[in-house]
Design a binder for these strands. Structure first.
Length: 246
DNA sequence: GCGACAG
DNA sequence: ATCTTGTCGC
């Protein structure tokens, strides 16, 4: 079987589908109205798997999207690291014009298309995706991490720098301490202290992984900084990607 | 009706 | 997210 990623889109697709040009997201409807997007989220959310359904994790990908100064272009960057030593195995980028406004709760409709395009360029198929933003810690339980994980059928985790929804206590002061993020009586994520003396990060299930495993993986990808190395690497790349892409 | 609000 | 100068701290 082809090990490359298929571009996916509005609806989940089996991995056994024939290899495509890795740009198939273009062939799908990301151009939805906000109400249609909300309806799609509600439907896709029922497909999200909130428990460990992943093999051994070796290759972890960080996914991030940045924007040009003019605000017209979105640049996605994906960096795959070897979890054993956090060295870079592969990195790719993609750039395209933004086609959807930023609306809290609908971030994936703005950033997922270009992110999927970048992911489609990967030769390596990552075992896990660490996405910038929420997973199920979302009003309709389908943040960008869940959306991407579901469409690509790859285990994923949401790693956000700030809160979208939910309430929580302050996590302990030590690295690794975390407090549950709760919404409507449900634990939707973990507010994790990755570094003493700094603001905690918001970790949530993306797809095919449980919360405890997600927290564990994020910790393993985090060294001396607040954010995991995967996210930092992708973030840096997304800020210079426009030069290499355009 | 009044705030809150990933990136 | 991006726009921006200096400033506090290790």
């Amino acid at each position: 079987m082809d090990d490359r990623l298929d571009g996916a889109a509005g609806v989940a697709r089996p991995l056994t589908a024939a290899p495509t040009l890795a740009h198939s997201s273009l062939a799908h409807s990301w151009n939805l109205s906000t109400s249609e997007a909300v309806a799609l989220q509600k439907r896709l959310a029922t497909e999200v798997v909130r428990e460990d359904r992943l093999g051994s994790v070796r290759r972890v990908a960080g996914v991030d999207v940045g924007y040009g100064k003019r605000g017209g272009d979105a640049r996605a960057a994906v960096v795959v690291l070897d979890l054993a030593d956090l060295t870079v195995l592969e990195s790719v980028t993609a750039t395209r014009a933004v086609a959807f406004p930023y609306v809290p709760g609908l971030l994936s409709f703005r950033e997922a298309p270009v992110a999927i395009e970048a992911l489609g360029k990967l030769r390596i198929r990552p075992d896990l995706l660490l996405c910038d933003g929420q997973g199920i810690a979302h009003p309709r339980r389908l943040g960008i991490a869940s959306h991407l994980g579901l469409l690509l059928d790859i285990p994923s985790i949401g790693v956000a720098k700030s809160r979208l929804i939910g309430t929580h206590e302050d996590p302990g002061p030590r690295r690794g301490d975390w407090a549950p993020l709760v919404n409507k009586g449900e634990v939707i994520g973990a507010v994790l202290r990755t570094r003493p003396g700094t603001k905690p990060i918001y970790v949530s299930i993306g797809h095919r992984i449980g919360l405890d495993t997600a927290v564990s993986c994020v910790m393993r990808c985090t060294t001396r900084f607040r954010l995991p190395e995967t996210t930092r690497a992708a973030d840096r790349l997304s800020k210079v990607a426009v030069v290499a892409d355009v």
